[in-house]
Structure formats: structure tokens, C-alpha cells
Design a protein around this nucleic acid. Sequence first.
DNA 1: ATCTGGCTAGGAC
DNA 2: CTAACGGTCCTAGCCAGAT
Length: 420
Amino acid sequence: MEKNLALVDCNNFFVSCERVFRPDLEGKPVIVLSSNDGCAIARSNEAKALGIRMGEPWFKVKDLPKYRDVVVFSSNFPLYSDLSNRVKYLLADFSPVQEVYSVDESFLDLTGFDDVKERMVAIRETVAKRIGIPVCVGVGPTKTLAKLANYVAKKHPRSKGVFHYNVLTEQQKSGLLKQIPIDEVWGVGRRLNRSLISRGIETVYQLREADIRTMRSRYGVVMERLISELRGISCIDMVDVSPPKKQILSSRSFGGVITEIDDLENAIAFHATKIGKQLRRQHSIAGMVHVFLMTDRFRKDKPQYHPHVSLPLIDATNSTIEINRYAMMGLHRIFRPGYEYRKAGACVSELSPESVFSPDMFTDPKRRKIMQVMDEINDRFGNGTLRLSQDDMMHRRWRPKVDRVSPRYTTSWDELAECQ
DNA sequence: ATCTGGCTAGGAC
DNA sequence: CTAACGGTCCTAGCCAGAT
């Protein structure tokens, strides 16, 4: 039996989050910048219409006269994740099967409901009314077609934000797919797009009708699945609980040039702390720690150095202290004076469930207690109350640039109070 | 003959 | 004032070496 899989996608999500608390920005060009106020990573429809591209480095174009009235925000992730959670919880009411796909997207299985179209409209209206975020809903027999239906819902004003692919006739489906360029398909990125076009495949219809054996031998299983999905044969299942991560990475570009080892220590300690917290939250322990540094890859005139080191942990752990200890060893191993560093990061891999850990006779159980106590104190009195000595907020000279961040309206009483 | 880890490519958002 | 281009995560496919 044909499924009704829905993809609910928030429109221009980060911009919409900013607009929830700034309704005066409705109808205006608004963008949100990446970390360090680097690139445009969310754009309102007005900003898109002006020609601002996804991922565009803002400093390069911000002085163009046509962008004079663009309203610019630094990214405010505490705000976006909070609103993201609220949307997720609301959506859960509309189906027993939900897969949270990303910060702004959920799949919902609407199979078996006899009021699919009404539900799609209700989802849109409820999220708009209760949270103030505009969403579009697409329904199809497979995840790939649900995503495509969502694209149609977003693109065509006549759909009013919802599009139900399954109720089309075969002729209508083909007609629709003939109008959609292949790079709108989930899984077709820049490279595949170019390669397919060079073989004369330009529309989703042509891709759906392509010979699946040839395509598989040329492009691999991913392409085979993709084409099957376009034909309505489901190959990508819904996953209800997201599996634990297999690697956790934390990195940041610096606000300016960094040359000193103690500043790098400060940055790496910050990343180790973040990673430890995340590991414990998902009840994993790590077997390997990686550290890397980077100079400015855009400055071809300066000496480049992009070292990376991986250290196996003797005992797998999720202790911030242990991870930091190894990360510091790694940092000192790769650091070379005389370079202008622009970015540093740490990563853990070889993750396994906490329950696997079997303390041997040399492992002091008290040491594991320390992290528990640290988490409790920081939860109660705020992050950074108890921290690594190197992770000192007052000496974060590497701090990324954040010029235009909005208040954390929903997660900080202090910042809410500062609003008029 | 098969499994494994290391590595690169490509992609999503 | 000036310099300035993000951060995280995943799978497939290939190769070499180990079992």
C-alpha cells in the first residue's frame, strides 16, 4: 500500500526565528550569518530576491548599494534550538511516527489517516499560530518524493504551503517532474548535477525514467536508491530514534589571528569541554581524540600549516578532564610557532556506549564521579561555573566575531529583560 | 575469501 | 578602525593489509 510520508520544513528557519521577536522585519530582506559573522546561511525571501546567495561571504558584498537595507543578524543558536524543539514537540501531535531530520525539518508518517490534506493544512496553521514559524508541508510515497513535494509547496504560491503528490494522476506527476531541475532532488549536489547534465539528464522526470542498471554501475548504490525512490519505491526508511553519533567535533574560526600556544590551549580546552558534555549527554565514551589547527587558507601569500593528530585513549572515556589531557598533548605535538592560526578544533571518534566500559583494577571510581558533580554544578549554577583552568572565558582572545546577535529571548531572563 | 581500517569524495543542512 | 570566506555529521567506495 502506498504510504503518505510528510516532510515538514520551516521556511528560512533562522530568519523566521529572528522575526518571531521582531515582527517589524516581516516583508524586509533579512539574513543570518554563520559563526564569526562570515557567510549568509539563512535568507528571507526578500533577501533571496535581491540576489544574496546561500553561503555567500557577506563582507564581500555588503557594501553593494542594492543591499543597503538588508537587516543582518549574527547567528543565535540558543534561540534557534529552543524554537526548533518547540516545533518538534508540536509536530509530534500530528503523527505517531516522527523522524527529526534536522534543526528545521521533520518527517511524519501520515499513512492511515483519511484526512491527510486537512492534516497538512492543520500542521501549517498550528505551527504558525502557536510558535510563529512558517512551515511548508509536502507529502509523497517516499522520503525523496516528500522532500520534492515540499519543494513544490515552497515554490508555488498556489499551493499555499502544502503539496500532496500522491493525489496527482500519473500524467500530472510526470508533468510536474518535467518542470523540476535535478539539483532539487535530495542527494543531488553540485558534482552530480553537473555530471548528470553532461549526460543529458536535466529534469527529475528524465532521472526517474533513466535506466537503473546503467545508472547504478555509473554512480553506485546511492543513485540506484535515489531513482527507486523517485519511482515511488521506498528505500530510505523512517528512523524514529536517532542513533548516537559516531563522531563528535567542535571547531571554530578565530575572530582574529592567533599565534600563541596559550590562546590555542584556551580554544582546545573549550572544545574538549563541549565534546565531553555532548558525549555524556548521549551516554557514549570515546576511544580516540583528534586535534587540528589551521592557518588562513584564503591567504595564499602567507605560509600555510594545517596539522592534525589522532591519539588513542588508553581507556575509553567521556571525562572532559581526560579528553582535555589528551587534546593538550596533541596540541603541543602539532603546534609550531611562527604561523598565524585562524582555526582550531577537536574531535572524538571510536565511540561506544557508556555501558560497555568495564573499569579495571587501576581505575579509580571516584574519578568518574567528578564529571557527574561537574555537570550537576554547571546545570544548577550555569555553564562555566566549574571548568578547566585553560577554559577561561576572560581570556578567550580567539573569540569569534559576533557583532549583531539578537537577545536569547527564550532562554535567558537577563537578555529578555534588556528588550524594550 | 573475507573482514578491517584508513582514506577520499560527495552530500545535507 | 580594519580585516574579513561556517560548523557538524554521514555513507559509499576503494585500497592495502590482516585474518
